[in-house]
Computed example of a mutant assay.
Amino acid sequence: MAKKPTVYDVAEQAGVSIATVSRALRKPQSVRQTTRESIEAAIQLLGYVPSGSARSLAARRTGIIGLVLPNVDELETLGDFELMNHDTAEISVDRQVVGKIHRDSLYFDHVLRGCELESWSQGLSLMVSIGLGRGESDVNQLVHDMIGKVDGLIILARSVPDRLVESLYSRIPLVMVADAPIGGENKMDLVRVSNRKGMKTLVEHLVDAHQVSRFIYMAGPDDSPDNHKRYVGFQEGLAAKGISPESIPIYRGKFSRPTAKNITNDLIARGDLPQALVCANDQMALGALDALTQAGLHVPEDVIVTGFDGIEESDTSHPRLTTVRQPMVNLGRAAVSTVVKRIEHPDDPPYSTEMPVHVLLRESCEGPLGTV
């Protein structure tokens, strides 16, 4: 096998110093165009491949950002995979199944996509790990393995135990998405959206425009900061309109479409449907729509249904789902931008970003709207 070309060979071929080659690879804009073109021509001629590990040692950076997620949508239905090699093609009739649970483009997918896009735009790589189904000791090991390979870390709330987050933020550039552990809001870098204001605005609209006084609230997991902020906004919206929040029944839908469907089926069977079923995320709202549709009930005539997040399926459901859209892709981009700022400016005070949301009024609340 021929000897691999080195940076010394590139420098000799281009007629420049090794330092100039290194600078052209790390910061091309800092090298004159003619010099850069000579170096690029030498690299192409020799087939030189820069050593990532060598550049990392020189720059004391890996060029990698770590991302820890609590879950990815498909994990909930992920089965065993068997690698097979069969040169075949099967054919079958794919009939529509009423009430079939489709895979949604969910919150975590969009945040992950935003992190990928911003990492790419900044010339960085993204390392992703998922905490679902692992015990606390396994998550601790997973995160400690990761931090030795990355320049900074993005953690979605509920992915990592709070005490581990507390021990990490002073050791590595770290950004929390959604919320920080209790007591950490003013000392950690934080990126989140206006969950409270979005839900409050939606509830006030339901009362003002549709005279809703009988609500049911479908909540997510108790340990979710998004769930907590949305419920606070729900309470504030009711109180602002003279409705006691304590009078409103709460059901634990766990941010799960099947769970919400089961809860709604039970409400239908008992004849306990409210005027408006307000769900803390779109998944649960879609589950409620599944149950109501199968029972032959009409939305919004029999009951108004609303969600939160603005996932893609909320715009294709029947009826389309009234929701509060949060900028999920931009949330991921903001998280990467923030961790890069922290890497470059380690002594800055904590960065805190709260991104706006948009209440989208659709047919599940407003009835027929027509087209534009």
Rank of each mutant, 00 (worst) to 15 (best):
L164Y: 05
I182M: 10
V203C: 02
L168R: 10
D162P: 02
G198A: 15
G183E: 14
H210W: 02
L190E: 11
L142D: 02
M199H: 01
K200Y: 00
D151V: 07
D189L: 08
M199K: 00
H205W: 01
D151Y: 04
A157K: 04
L168M: 12
N186H: 10
V150K: 00
G198E: 13
G148P: 04
K197S: 14
V177E: 00
V193D: 05
G148A: 12
E136A: 11
P173Q: 00
H210P: 06
M188Y: 14
V160A: 06
A209C: 14
A178E: 12
K200T: 01
V139S: 03
I154E: 00
L142P: 03
M146H: 01
L164H: 01
V143S: 12
E166N: 12
V160G: 10
Y169M: 09
V165D: 11
E204W: 04
L206K: 06
S194V: 03
G152P: 03
I182E: 15
V165A: 14
I155W: 07
I182G: 01
I154R: 09
N140Q: 08
M176Y: 11
E166F: 15
D208S: 05
I147E: 05
L153S: 02
V150A: 10
M188G: 07
V193N: 07
V139C: 04
P173C: 05
I147K: 00
R196T: 02
V207M: 02
V212Y: 13
E136V: 09
I182R: 14
L206E: 00
E204H: 02
R158E: 13
G152K: 08
L202K: 06
L168Q: 08
D145A: 05
L156R: 08
A178G: 05
P181T: 06
Q211P: 03
N186A: 14
E166W: 15
M146D: 04
R163M: 13
G152F: 05
D179E: 14
Y169I: 10
I154H: 08
Y169T: 08
L168Y: 12
R163T: 15
D145F: 01
V212W: 14
V139W: 04
E204M: 14
P173M: 01
V193G: 03
D179T: 01
R196V: 03
I182F: 14
M146W: 02
A209P: 04
M199V: 10
S194P: 06
A209H: 10
I147Q: 05
E204C: 07
M199S: 13
Q211N: 15
L202V: 09
E204P: 05
H144E: 13
E166V: 13
D189A: 07
V139A: 02
M188V: 08
D151T: 11
M176F: 12
D189E: 05
Q211V: 06
L174Y: 09
V139F: 03
G184M: 15
G152W: 09
R171H: 12
I147P: 04
H144I: 00
R171N: 13
L168K: 08
L206R: 01
V203M: 02
G148H: 15
G148I: 10
